[in-house]
Amino acid sequence: MLEDLGIELWVGDPARIRKAAPRKQKTDRNHARLLLELLEENRFPRISTPASERRACRGPRSGFRTGPRATCASC
């Protein structure tokens, strides 16, 4: 849906973001500042997400590992 609107969604890797923090103290203000710095410096650690075609093949999931995974012919 977001791709249809031309919006690119980035999902960050929380462990790598935490390692980039200079201080151990985490506040909303410090966290927001860190995320902004990582984005501005092009160092934001992203987690890869499947392409929209691949996500469409998966269909809705009712829970984590609830049964055998069905795949479509194009995947």
Rank of each mutant, 00 (worst) to 15 (best):
P60N: 12
A56G: 04
A73E: 14
F44V: 01
R55L: 14
A21L: 00
Q25S: 04
E41V: 00
G12V: 08
R58G: 12
R16M: 10
D4C: 02
A20T: 01
T27V: 00
T71F: 14
A21T: 01
C72K: 15
A15Y: 06
R46A: 01
K19V: 00
P60Y: 13
C75V: 01
R23D: 08
L34E: 02
N30E: 08
C75N: 09
P22T: 02
A73L: 06
R33G: 03
G6K: 10
G6P: 02
S52H: 13
P50E: 04
E8Q: 14
D28T: 05
D4G: 11
I7Q: 06
E8N: 13
D28P: 12
L35Q: 02
P22H: 10
R16P: 00
E40Q: 15
E41M: 06
K19L: 10
G12A: 11
C75P: 14
P60E: 15
R33A: 14
P22D: 00
P45N: 07
E8T: 05
E37L: 09
G12P: 08
R54I: 10
E3W: 05
K19N: 08
A21M: 06
R46K: 15
R46M: 10
K19C: 02
R55K: 15
T27E: 07
G67D: 12
C57P: 14
E8W: 02
